[in-house]
Design a protein around this nucleic acid. Structure first.
Length: 501
RNA sequence: GCCGCCUUAGCUCAGUUGGUUAGAGCGCUAGAUUGUGGAUCUAGAGGUCCCCCGUUCAAUUCGGGGAGGCGGUACCA
């Protein structure tokens, strides 16, 4: 490999968690982005693009005790020593944008945005250090109708890209309801000192789907040791409180109305909790009115989401099928979309409270998950260009003009730019996925003709021929036409394949 | 971060109980076929057996350390 390490320069390699995207995958990604965009547009959101780099403090990530950006964020210092960071989501930059342009924006302000975001953490299946998100947010209203729309948007978008109803589920909860439960076990938000305990309880609840009731019970109490021997400290609740929390988690039932009925008594007495249940009830009625039933949006008490800034309804979308890797191992992809209400985020920049809610689709993860489901990488093979073969290098201008004529007619075409012989050129055309090649050697020039070989048709004809000599002499799917008919003939061939496909 | 498994050709993997020329399939290049992609046949190129240190007459193989990959766990805006 690197026999002469000093002479061959640096090793050509990529940092972990990053990957190159080839043409086929790129086309698949673009197709997905187009579908998402059209749904977002239809819901009335306006596009907005903000830079990949922001001041670190605008992203809001400082360790409390250090004058350094948080780990997990790619950061560096500018000439003036100010800390800059690569954005780790599209929400924090939105909050900055809204605060900066508040006077000029119509309220509620609704925008969508897509782009790559960066997280400096350990990669995994469907987890990258650079990935694409597609967000839609509504800023400037505290109506939970905006939250309901987020759930609808997630569901509708997933269906637009081909996930059938039932193949995904948007799980809905409310931070207010969670706070109500915390209040019920005596560690209400606001009562400082129990902060760590609250985080522990919420994190434990979030792990219900992965660890089951027993695992969550351990994490709520003394702690849990996983199969690799790693120990996770528990929240240290007493048995009575653990039972209460577990009872709450099991309140999510088959239908939203059943879940609401079960939730109500569990938060009774907590004003926050009751308000949360009321929010969910209103969202439920809006979803129902819009035709989004229990089969696509469900209430799930174990949905917690980020601990930093969500203040009201929270939701996440996941694919319901079990994804199995090539060697039969089930893979855990996590949610492919999520969101929630973050009423405090814009306020960080301006004294005044600005309620907001939004959702985000993890495009890269979604694509990876769908690819894994399909048993291979997401590929959208495009059709290659028509290749004009170079039979005689002295005639390059002639070939160039043919390629240009095809291009002028809107046909993807190129003159062969390498220096190899005809056989290699045919191979090249084959590998490029060319629908046909244009051949003009001395004989054809003398007759004022060109040979056009249909490679797709030719490949089909070849299947029946096993003798190479016969195959060559038959010249399947190859026709000779006058130079003046070149464009029309190529167009016919393309049209034939387009309608066949 | 912690735990476990893994690392041999471009790819997927054999193999060497420590021994002199390390293999296969696929892929790649060329020829059979001076102007025809497929198939077939033939030939060829391509390896510091992840790196470093140690044990040994001898290490790709054994031991220690490191790096990279995979998985679990923690964290997750």
């Amino acid at each position: 490999m690197a026999k002469k390490k000093q002479d061959t320069g640096p090793e050509a390699r990529l940092p972990k968690g990053f990957h190159d995207t080839d043409a086929a995958e790129l086309r698949a990604t673009r197709a997905m982005l187009d579908k998402i965009r059209s749904v977002y547009e239809r819901y009335g959101f306006e596009p907005l693009e903000t830079p990949a780099i922001e001041y670190t403090d605008a992203l809001g990530k400082f360790l409390p005790d250090q004058d350094r950006p948080n780990e997990g964020v790619f950061s560096f210092q500018d000439d003036d020593e100010q800390w800059l960071s690569l954005r780790y989501d599209l929400t924090a930059p939105l909050a900055r944008y809204v605060a900066q342009n508040f006077q000029a924006l119509p309220k509620p302000f609704r925008r969508y945005a897509t782009g790559t975001v960066y997280r400096n953490e350990k990669p995994g299946p469907g987890r990258f250090r650079q990935f694409t998100q597609f967000d839609a947010d509504t800023v400037g209203t505290d109506s939970v109708a905006a939250d309901a729309e987020c759930c609808m948007l997630l569901a509708e978008t997933l269906e637009a890209i081909g996930v059938t109803r039932g193949g995904y589920l948007v799980k809905l909860n409310s931070r207010k309801v969670l706070d109500g439960v915390l209040e019920g076990i005596g560690i209400a938000p606001g009562a400082d000192g129990d902060h760590a305990k609250r985080l522990g309880v919420l994190r434990a609840m979030d792990k219900l789907d992965r660890l089951g009731t027993e695992g969550v019970a351990l994490l709520l109490g003394a702690g849990r040791k996983d199969e690799s021997g790693d120990f996770t400290a528990g929240a240290g609740l007493d048995a009575r409180s653990i039972d209460k929390v577990l009872g709450f988690l099991s309140a999510a039932n088959a239908s939203r109305s059943a879940a609401l009925a079960a939730l109500s008594p569990l938060v009774a007495g907590s004003a926050t909790g009751e308000a949360g249940v009321a929010d969910l009830a209103e969202i439920d009625s809006l979803l129902t009115a819009a035709g989004f039933g229990d089969d696509c949006v469900a209430i799930d008490a174990s949905v917690v989401r980020g601990l930093e800034y969500y203040t009201g309804p929270v939701f996440e979308a996941e694919l319901t099928s079990t994804i199995v890797s090539a060697d039969g191992q089930p893979m855990r992809f996590g949610s492919v979309g999520s969101g929630g209400r973050y009423d405090g985020l814009v306020q960080r920049f301006m004294g005044q409270p600005v309620p907001a809610t939004g959702c985000s689709i993890g495009v890269s993860r979604l694509q990876a998950a769908l690819a894994a489901l399909a048993g291979g990488a997401a590929k959208a093979e495009g059709q290659g260009p028509v290749i004009v073969l170079v039979m005689d290098r002295a005639q390059l201008p002639r070939y160039q003009s043919m390629a240009q004529a095809l291009r002028s007619a809107g046909i993807r075409a190129e003159m062969y730019l390498g220096t190899s012989g005809m056989k290699a050129q045919m191979k090249y055309a084959d590998r490029r996925g060319a629908p046909c090649v244009v051949i003009q050697g001395g004989d054809e020039i003398a007759k004022g003709e060109v040979q056009i070989k249909d490679l797709i048709e030719g490949a089909k004809a070849a299947a029946a021929i096993t003798d190479n000599k016969e195959w060559k002499e038959a010249r399947p799917a190859q026709i000779s036409v006058a130079v003046s008919d070149l464009v029309a003939t190529v167009r016919e061939i393309l049209a034939r394949h387009a309608s066949a496909a």
